[in-house]
Amino acid sequence: MGSIEFLGKQLELDADGNLKNMTDWNEEIAIELAKVEGIEKLTERHWMVINFMRKEFEDKGDAPSIRKLTKESGVNTKEFYQLFPKGPVKKAARIAGLPKPKGCI
């Protein structure tokens, strides 16, 4: 549904506004995606979440539940909400170049 231009490259987006092709994603793109979400700088802690999400997605085909993420990524619930304010799971998935998570939890 639309596209977005980053670093001189036109990237296709899906109906939710997430990257359509996971292969378009790289760390520079993530930094740009984060800016769109209002996160000026991706810290080491943000990357812990992003990398964990991408790994889970590769293994399971969907983003992890918030419970799994906050238990296993090294970032707890409180910090997760601080790192990605206003809709942390959706936001983190978008920055990680993944489709919108399907789970309810």
Binding site: S65, I66, R67, K68, T70, N76, T77, K78, Y81, G103, I105
Partner: peptide, 18 residues
């Protein structure tokens, strides 16, 4: 199985989430 936590953990999770 679908990662819904027990009541106490769920309450903590909601509280920590603000």
């Amino acid at each position: 199985k679908i990662d819904i936590p027990p009541v106490r953990e769920f309450i903590e999770m909601i509280h920590d989430a603000g």
